[in-house]
């Protein structure tokens, strides 16, 4: 129970025209966007990471404009050409230009990553908030999450691919399921802290609906934790997705996907290393960038770590 004094004090904050508005002002412990961006840009590592992420996203979005050739057209007379011979980054086992395939591969990989993170985090978030807000549901929901946590993502991928057949949807479903329990735990943890705050008590006393309290007061105050989790998770999901595609469970030909491209080239590793090495390097760079960005975001959003 927080003290009624706090509410009273909050209610008389300047600019608060109604009681609810006063609660809002109290709840909004806003991390100023400008501060975060400034903090991110002040660090060389996060600057590089941010530019890499932006570059990757731009490359993926504009793949069809940037790619020099048709991503699906083969040229069997010019297979496995090393970089520099005919094309800047060489050709793959079907004689396709590596630059084109990498751009399209990046697009597939990022799409797979974002879809999985969006689905997984939405469902995980709902479960997390529900578990935090309704203590009676908490035991049931969180034990179910624990069960999900005990399965590795690769195993989900294998099982789902066995049921529905390999393909991008199978990978997205598997990675979403694997993301749900992680997100639920992060959200429940942060939400529980927020729910202890006085303004929540105030909002409840005002008779606001549960949904309104969660969406208006709990969610915004959990956002920093969620942002950090999503950014870090995105890197992990890309890696897992690439691994599943490497095993042949993900994108099916002719779709270009970085993990599948790395797998395609592994039989010629000694003779045409670029076919495997280049997509692997792109995966490495993207995952690293997201991880560094996640770390920097955490530093920027955590007041305790702020200089």
């Amino acid at each position: 129970m927080s003290s009624p004094m706090k509410l009273e004090r909050n209610a008389f904050q300047p600019g608060a025209k109604t009681v609810e508005a006063a609660v809002s002002v109290a709840a909004a412990a806003p991390v100023r966007r400008k501060t975060v961006l400034r903090m991110l840009l002040s660090d060389v590592g996060s600057c590089v990471a941010l530019s890499l992420v932006v570059l990757a996203i731009l490359g993926a979005v504009f793949a069809s404009w940037l790619a020099p050739t048709d991503p699906f057209g083969n040229d069997l007379a010019n297979t496995l050409k090393p970089p520099g011979e005919g094309s800047l980054l060489g050709t793959d086992g079907q004689g396709r230009d590596m630059i084109t395939r990498l751009l399209y591969g990046l697009r597939t990989t990022l799409m797979m990553g974002s879809a999985s993170v969006v689905f997984g985090c939405t469902i995980g978030g709902i479960i997390g908030f529900a578990a935090a807000y309704y203590p009676r549901l908490s035991g049931l929901l969180m034990r179910f999450m624990d069960i999900l946590l005990s399965f590795p993502a690769i195993l989900f991928g294998l099982a789902i691919a066995a049921i529905f057949g390999p393909g991008l949807p199978a990978v997205i479903i598997a990675l979403s399921i694997a993301t749900v329990p992680l997100m639920a735990r992060v959200v429940r943890g942060s939400a529980l802290v927020v729910l202890q705050q006085g303004y929540i008590e105030a909002a409840r006393s005002l008779g606001l609906s549960d949904l309104r309290i969660i969406l208006r007061y709990v969610l915004p105050n959990c956002l920093s934790a969620i942002f950090v989790f999503v950014t870090l998770r995105f890197g992990q999901v890309i890696l897992l997705g690439a691994a599943l595609s490497f095993l042949g469970l993900g994108a099916q030909p002719p779709t270009a996907e970085l993990g599948a491209m790395a797998a395609d080239g592994r039989n010629f590793l000694f003779f045409a290393p670029h076919v495997s090495v280049l997509p692997s390097l792109v995966i490495f760079a993207v995952v690293l960038a997201f991880n560094v960005l996640g770390d920097s975001l955490r530093d920027a959003l955590d007041p305790k770590l702020r200089k």
């Binding site: 699906f72 057209g73 083969n74 069997l76 086992g93 079907q94 042949g248 030909p253 002719p254 395609d264």
Partner: peptide, 13 residues
């Protein structure tokens, strides 16, 4: 994988 992908590209043409 390589055979089918090459056929796929030819058929697409």
């Amino acid at each position: 994988p390589r055979i089918s992908e090459a056929m796929q590209a030819d058929l697409r043409k």
